[in-house]
Design a binder for these strands. Structure first.
Length: 607
DNA sequence: TTTAGGG
DNA sequence: CCCTAAA
């Protein structure tokens, strides 16, 4: 069935040669409409192998990802027979890689122009791989959904092709029964694909896809949660509080956090009666924009959501703005704004603006290089707590775990992208990828294969350096412990390097554990047993190239145990709450406890 | 190299 | 998270 189409190319090649454009072609309006493309961020190892981007990396991209991307993201990468030939051919190359399981479906990146820019800047070995998936079927970005399996990836069994086929475009409420992710359904104002609406809608039914543990296990339906609950969930997910009251935003963020992916549509949609409502005016505008703004322009798509419709009539970003965009708040800023917004809209705004401008500059630079020759700054409007903010779609490549090697490199270029790109050894690749939604399949598949890959890869992991973007939105967000590191990122090399000015090593990067990570950890312990950290890491975390080390896993588990037992019985209900620090849903804690007890009994063998 | 613990 | 002793 679904053949994966992907192209892996040397970045230079892509950018330098006309080919690049061709590849990008999928974005062309025409293509987009019919064949949404999902891009996946990939890093090319020195040996030429493709290494799936880290979830964080992806994350960054997602945040900024263009509307387009959002569409793409959703889509599961199946190539329809219909896929444009060119795409197919291109993709074919990558398909191999994909099969190998290197590709992870989580994030698709909509890099086009930006990529090109970045690439240009990056002159080293980095390569970009674009893999295009033609289908729009969206999948919940799930960390679990990684296509790690070499063989299986494309097998129908593993892949939910069938399911997808059956439920092509429409996300019927039926499909989504159970848990609805509004986010998925939500359409971004800028979403590219006109046709997308259905596609987006296609957001995978939570049930089927089993986006994430929380979703599956927790049976968390973000849609139904009140804002307060969402905020709690947010805290649980990211380890920090949020005052944001925008349901849409919260849901999206949470979803992103849970899934570790970017698929979640960025913006606000108005959902009414299970349908996404877009302002026609805007839509019309959009149409206009689409023509003008090549790749980025997006179409409005109306999606159906089963969510209990609460309406967010936030404006979808106006095309107009898109054109104008100056501001480019990072996530963090956005979040902050939203949070503070309530309190002080004015102040925050001003602050944001200033920062944004800075960012914008960078962005612009990048954009300039774009193939079109015309730099287009794409921004999207995000409504925060009632105030709208324009957010530039800047893809961030997240710094993955900083390897020592890299660090040195990184230091040189503190400023800009170039530095990031310049990791000598590894190259970042973006490839569009088709994503399989099938949770079960993905999950099972991902684990084993990946390991092999990693192994075979010859230890590249460590060597590889990921390109980073100056801004790292995620870091700020994720890091619950507000580390100064984030700040440093902008100014300095970015968190990637633990180096301190003093010359001493700084703490590694504080990365708050996400719910999804915790879930994976718990699963891993359940499967392999506590103490098998290396196993767990390989099987459960290698997939998305988590920077978590076995030691990290061990430490986290230790903390989980502590938390689980610390929890007094009285708390049955409140999974979250209190303890400013914590989160971690009850279920997980309970699981932890069970596992702990269970293993205590049967310590040694087994698994 | 991986675990287990202490810090 | 870091560091380190043990294995």
């Amino acid at each position: 069935m679904g053949t994966v189409v992907g192209t892996v190319e040397d970045c230079r090649e892509m950018f330098e040669s006309s080919a690049a454009q061709t590849r990008i072609a999928p974005f062309s309006p025409t293509n987009q409409i019919e064949n949404p493309v999902a891009y996946k961020l990939v890093r090319v190892a020195g040996d030429g192998r493709l290494v799936p981007a880290t979830d964080e990396e992806i994350f960054e991209v997602n945040e900024t990802d263009m509307h387009t991307a959002s569409d793409a993201c959703h889509s599961v990468g199946y190539l329809p027979a219909e896929g444009s030939p060119s795409q197919l051919s291109q993709l074919e190359e990558t398909s191999e890689a994909v099969n190998s399981g290197l590709l992870q479906s989580d994030c698709v990146e909509p890099y086009t122009n930006q990529c090109s820019e970045m690439l240009q800047k990056v002159e080293k070995d980095e390569r970009l791989v674009m893999i295009h998936g033609s289908h729009m079927l969206s999948t919940p970005p799930d960390t679990n959904i990684q296509f790690c399996n070499e063989n299986n990836m494309f097998d129908e069994d593993q892949v939910h092709h069938e399911a997808l086929l059956q439920q092509p475009i429409p996300l019927s409420s039926d499909v989504q029964t159970g848990c609805n992710f509004d986010q998925y359904n939500t359409v971004e104002p800028f979403s590219n694909s006109t046709a997308a609406s259905p596609k987006e809608t296609a957001a995978p039914p939570a049930d089927t896809q089993k986006p994430d543990f929380s979703l599956v296990r927790g049976e968390i339906c973000l849609n139904n949660l009140p804002i307060k609950a969402l905020q709690e969930t947010f805290r649980a997910t990211f380890g920090r509080e949020t005052t944001v009251k925008d349901k849409t935003w919260l849901k999206r963020r949470i979803t992103m956090g849970l899934t570790n992916s970017c698929n979640v549509p960025t913006t606000n949609l108005t959902i009414k009666d299970n349908k996404l409502v877009v302002n026609q005016d805007k839509a019309s505008v959009r149409a206009t924009n689409l023509k003008d703004a090549p790749p980025y322009s997006t179409d409005h798509v109306s999606g159906h959501s089963n969510t209990s419709g609460h309406n967010l009539t936030e404006d979808f970003s106006c095309e107009e703005r898109a054109a104008k965009r100056v501001r480019k708040p990072t996530r963090r800023y956005i979040e902050e704004l939203s949070e503070t917004d309530e309190k002080q809209q004015n102040d925050n705004k001003s602050v944001v603006t200033s920062k944004d401008q800075r960012l914008s500059e960078k962005t612009e630079v990048r954009s300039i290089s774009v193939s079109l020759g015309k730099r287009v700054t794409v921004t999207r409007v995000v409504s925060l707590a009632g105030s709208e903010i324009e957010v530039p779609y800047v893809s961030h490549v997240r710094r993955s775990r900083p390897r020592e090697n890299i660090m040195a490199l990184m230091e040189c270029h503190s400023s800009c992208l170039e530095a990031k790109a310049s990791s000598g050894e590894s190259n970042m690749l973006l490839h569009s990828e088709v994503v399989n939604l099938d949770p079960s399949v993905v999950k099972s598949a991902s684990v084993p294969e990946q390991k092999e890959l990693a192994t075979s890869s010859s230890n590249n992991e460590e060597e590889d350096v990921l390109t980073e973007v100056d801004q790292d939105m995620e870091a700020g967000n994720i890091d619950s412990s507000g580390n100064s590191s984030d700040d440093n990122n902008n100014n300095n090399n970015i968190g990637a390097t633990p180096m301190m000015q003093g010359g001493g090593l700084r703490r590694k990067h504080h990365r708050a554990w996400t719910l999804s990570e915790v879930t994976q950890l718990v699963e891993g312990v359940a499967k392999y047993g506590a103490g098998k950290w290396s196993e767990i890491k390989k099987l459960s975390f290698s997939s998305y190239y988590s920077y978590r080390t076995s030691v990290d896993l061990k430490d986290k588990w230790r903390n989980l145990l502590k938390a689980s037992f610390a929890q007094s019985p009285s708390n049955s209900m409140g999974s979250l709450k209190k303890h400013g620090s914590m989160h971690i849903p009850m279920q997980i804690l309970l699981q932890v406890r069970e596992l702990a007890e269970k293993q205590a009994l049967v310590p040694p063998n087994q698994r």
